[in-house]
């Protein structure tokens, strides 16, 4: 295409959008809503995943021993666990230390704890904290440890991860459903906008064909219109979401500063590494498909 032809096509495309502004705005809004939701869900699911992983990694497996297990026997078990390649770190906590920690955490120096003074209620609570470097192998390791002698009980951090996991699944399914519906509506609205544009310009199109315009030439302003609508429809939510995301993260960390240590959000830049190209591709894709299909249907000679 010559530069003058490209310029002509561009002007036509923009003219089309202006000519049926209401339809164009409706398409843009639907598209924007659709991509906004994609962004929200993407951020949500990814952050929940991120947090779940963090929880899994930071909450160790705790291994308790049977009564009467001697320190030496415990050490033997510790050696065996330590020898496993997936184990990153092993910490021993004696019954006394366990009680000390418990007391501090739950009684916070109150008198009530004094009643237990020389009678450690957690007498059988000597344990190992096992930290993993490969969280995926947690179940394998638990099975191994369970098979070892003297081991009474293992506490796994699986629950938190599991809950978060199933929450994630639910959010994913719901979002896929909503997004698919919105995608369909967006394609439909774009297609509608384009067909209105085509019917308004029916005469002009007839003349173009009579003069010897190629299908591509007749079509390109409409396809361009679709792409421009898609791009605007993508740009608005992407910009909005950037600010929403940073502000929400800031707000949560500020409001619930207890969470600061436990919860770490994915930085917005990292989210946008994926969301930006995906959002733009979605916008352009919807615009392209909507307009391409419509022009194909309406512009047959």
């Amino acid at each position: 295409m010559r530069p003058s032809t490209i310029w002509f096509t561009l002007k036509q495309g923009v003219k089309n959008i202006k000519r049926n502004l209401m339809f164009s705005i409706a398409s843009i809004i639907t598209m924007a809503a659709c991509i906004f939701l994609v962004g929200i869900f993407y951020s949500l699911v990814n952050n929940v995943n991120h947090i779940a992983r963090k929880v899994e990694q930071e909450v160790p497996i705790t291994v308790f021993f049977e009564k009467e297990t001697t320190k030496k026997e415990m050490k033997e078990v510790g050696k065996l666990i330590k020898a496993r390649p997936e184990v990153a770190k092993l910490e021993f906590e004696s019954a006394e230390e366990a009680w000390e920690k418990f007391r501090e955490q739950y009684f916070q120096g109150s008198e009530a704890a004094e009643g237990f003074k020389d009678d450690n209620p957690l007498v059988n609570s000597a344990n190992y904290h096992v930290y993993l470097n490969e969280i995926e192998r947690q179940n394998e390791l638990v099975a191994y440890i369970q098979g070892l002698e003297h081991v009474r009980e293992i506490n796994q951090s699986e629950e938190a991860a599991k809950t978060l996991g199933s929450f994630n699944k639910l959010v994913s399914y719901a979002s896929i459903a909503i997004i698919s519906i919105l995608l369909l509506i967006a394609v439909f609205l774009i297609s509608n906008t384009i067909s209105v544009g085509i019917s308004v310009r029916k005469e002009e199109i007839g003349i173009m064909k009579m003069i010897g315009a190629t299908d591509g030439f007749v079509r390109s302003p409409f396809v361009l219109e679709g792409i421009v609508l898609g791009l605007i429809g993508a740009a608005i939510p992407l910009v909005a979401l950037y600010f929403v995301y940073t502000n929400v993260v800031e707000y949560i960390l500020e409001k619930f500063n207890v969470l600061t240590g436990v919860v770490a959000f994915i930085p917005v830049q990292e989210i946008y590494m994926v969301l930006l190209p995906v959002g733009l591709a979605l916008g352009i894709g919807i615009g392209l498909i909507g307009s391409f299909v419509t022009t194909r249907k309406h512009l047959k000679v």
Binding site: E203, E204, K209, M210, I211
Partner: peptide, 20 residues
Amino acid sequence: RRIAKYRRKLGVVFQDFRLL
């Protein structure tokens, strides 16, 4: 696809002018 190119060899005029 050839039709468009072919029509460039013709000039056509109608009763109703068909101007934009």
